[in-house]
Design a protein around this nucleic acid. Sequence first.
RNA 1: GGAGAGGUGGCAGAGUGGUCGAAUGUACCUGACUCGAAAUCAGGCGUAGCGUUUACGCUACCGUGGGUUCGAAUCCCACCCUCUCCGCCA
Length: 441
Amino acid sequence: MLDIQTLRNDLDGVAARLATRGFVLDKEKFAQLEAERKNIQSRTQELQARRNSSSKLIGQAKAKGEDVSAIMAQVATLGDDLKQAEVQLGVVQNALQALLEMIPNSPHGSVPFGKSEADNLEVRKVGNIPKFDFAVKDHVDLGEKLGLDFDTATKISGARFSLLKGGLARLHRALAQFMLDTHTEQHGYTETYVPYLVNAESMRGTGQLPKFEEDLFKVPRQTIFDGGSTSFDGKTTTFNDNLYLIPTAEVPVTNMVRDEIVPLEDLPMKFVAHTPCFRSEAGSYGRDTRGMIRQHQFDKVELVQMVHPDTSYAALEQLLVHAETILQKLGLPYRVVKLCTGDMGFSSALTYDIEVWLPAQNTYREISSCSNFEAFQARRMQARFRNAQGKPELLHTLNGSGLAVGRTLVAVLENYQQADGSVVVPDVLRPYMGGKEILAP
RNA sequence: GGAGAGGUGGCAGAGUGGUCGAAUGUACCUGACUCGAAAUCAGGCGUAGCGUUUACGCUACCGUGGGUUCGAAUCCCACCCUCUCCGCCA
């Protein structure tokens, strides 16, 4: 969520920034809601002030045993006006809030302008692309012999699920363990184990709700109403008790600081979590249907930082290096791209993607996304720290994949394949594989 | 699933219809005392919004949402959460 003060002070400037990422801010609507809000709020508060002072007089008069009927009659005339004003104010404020929650983050000044991923900026290429003197296979063909079983997964669950057996399942686990150990032992992250089902408030905090509900798996609870309303005593109340499967560990981990004021000395906070991620992939029909590139369920090791606003961009560079380190240790070639304005995620101010080389596709594919959200998520979450002056201030949040485990598995298979269909286990993973050096059919 | 207790400021903890935005303690900040520190004394110390934007004034917030009332932390209803005991369970 953007700062409403900034919108009030510089509506045109904000709209221009947002336009670079293809978002059209409805300036007229905002201005109109703001004018209404101002008007109704002043009026409401004035009525409330009159009611409060009269009520206070009644209390004082009663204490002295005086007659209060005159004041009572006077204050009674406020009733309907005040109630109506309060209702109107609530309506306008809800509308403003709803508008604000649908506005994406404003891109950082250094983000290149562009419309799509074609306009992203390559920052660096690292590692040597392997040469093969035989026809390379993709991970599906390689995996078939090694324990990758889509047919059974489809029977059990459906499309976009996968099942691993034997050495491949162990390699998958080894990758996650290796990533966790590297980040905790060498990069200073605290390992966390977090819930995979979270409430709507958490999804709102990191920006998945209200705009991207269709991308999530929702888990309704029995006897609970679907965000709708129910009536009792002739009154109406709304409930929303749904839980959602996390699309990334970013959600539970970042929300650890929701509604908290953390001491200055606790910053920066650095957490790493290995979790499954669940995505409905609505709207991606037909894309990446082959293999385990795009799944409803995949594992990811996620890095999350909560930092002082002054240091968030330095922290992003570090976080990016932490993620790159995994690829370097695995000996996988990759490149880093800075996303252009049109390709960034809703909540991000600046995003680097790391793309790993996939020989069978003869191209780089996204394996990590590292973003600085500045105060965008913190404002939604009311996640603050106590600054040097002792005042609460919004902190900055960042996260990045370190890395997506399933796609890393794909990259290892394809880059370490041999002519006979076996796959060499990268050195750093062997301790996690019981010393095994080769995965053979 | 059943029974009970409870959710108040950074923390602890009072407050059952009216000078309560909230006592007191503690933590923190400032000053005094001290060579300095501790102890002691005095003062200050929640968040957000609105209007003038310095001084100030007003409004909202005591788990959440409704209701009763001229007036609600306090009364009523619903929901959420925490704790204790019983049952079931990995």
